[in-house]
């Protein structure tokens, strides 16, 4: 009897949490497709004729060159740069580090680990000063470099863990075939690491896509802002037009969720392996 009861409660908890997780997304999409007048009249009603114009309004909203489309492009530039920097720098380093003698290895690890505990709040103002000095404010790609570097420690540690466990037989086989170290890395190691690289990359992607603390400071002018910052002012642009506001929220929230669903296998694996994105 208690076992049945326990099952019942655990199922209830599981279903309850699932509802709590999904309902906001449901409402964002419900309101996003609903005519504003009906949101006011009957917010919970699910029978209505969809107002797709909400989406075009939201998409074209914003002043001048700072529409959602522009924010999306900025987000892609920022996130893309962050990925190139973090993976491009950290993956080879993480691989070759496994060959270092134990002492040097530990030193590398400690330094990189220290990099993971620096709080963003300490960085924001100096970043801002430096970027300003070099005329790099309001450039999504330049901001993306900062995001990329901040993701290096985590990327490095996760990739290093992976490479430590990499089957040595393969490397040795490559060596016997007369391949150079670099070739072994490029031809043998990289192709077999795609899964891990994708899951680590996605963690960086999620973080850089959503963060606003650094972007709000480095990307001041609105036409340079990514969606995470642009959304902050977006909600204010449509005072009573809730339909458009929620359509905007849908546009901002749905693409990463869809991307995640497609790649969820890698993400869940990456995280279960202990991946912690900054």
């Amino acid at each position: 009897m208690p076992r049945v009861l326990g099952k019942f409660f655990s199922n209830l908890g599981v279903l309850g949490w699932t509802a709590l997780v999904l309902l906001p997304f449901f409402f964002i999409m419900l309101f996003g497709t609903k005519p504003t007048s009906q949101i006011y009249a009957n917010p919970l009603g699910v029978i209505y004729s969809p107002a797709w114009s909400n989406f075009s309004n939201a998409w074209n909203a914003g002043a001048g060159d700072s529409t959602m489309g522009v924010w999306f492009i900025n987000t892609f530039l920022l996130v893309g740069t962050a990925l190139v920097v973090s993976l491009g720098v950290a993956v080879p380093a993480a691989y070759f580090t496994i060959f270092l003698p134990p002492k040097a290895n530990r030193r590398v690890m400690v330094t990189v680990l220290a990099g993971t505990v620096v709080p963003a709040i300490l960085l924001v103002i100096p970043f801002f000063k430096a970027y300003n000095q070099f005329g790099m404010l309001n450039k999504p790609i330049a901001a993306g470099v900062a995001y990329g570097v901040l993701a290096i420690p985590t990327t490095f540690l996760l990739m290093n863990r992976f490479f430590v466990d990499f089957p040595r037989e393969i490397l040795e086989a490559g060596l016997l075939d007369g391949l150079s170290n670099l070739r072994i890395f490029r031809r043998l190691v990289l192709p077999l690491s795609v899964g891990q690289i994708v899951s680590v990359g996605i963690l960086t992607l999620i973080w850089a896509w959503g963060d606003s603390q650094i972007a709000i400071v480095l990307l001041q002018s609105q036409e340079s802002q990514p969606i995470s910052v642009g959304m902050l002012s977006f909600a204010g642009d449509f005072t009573t037009d809730l339909g458009t506001t929620f359509a905007g929220l849908s546009i901002a929230a749905i693409p990463p969720v869809i991307l995640y669903i497609i790649l969820s296998k890698y993400v869940t694996k990456g995280i279960a392996l202990g991946g912690i994105s900054k």
Binding site: I206, I227, S228, M231, Y260, S264
Partner: peptide, 17 residues
């Protein structure tokens, strides 16, 4: 898969909602 949705959606959008 589902329970990670709130962690995927941009925090700004989530907070505004």
């Amino acid at each position: 898969v589902i329970w990670f949705f709130p962690g995927i959606a941009p925090p700004t959008a989530v907070a505004i909602f």
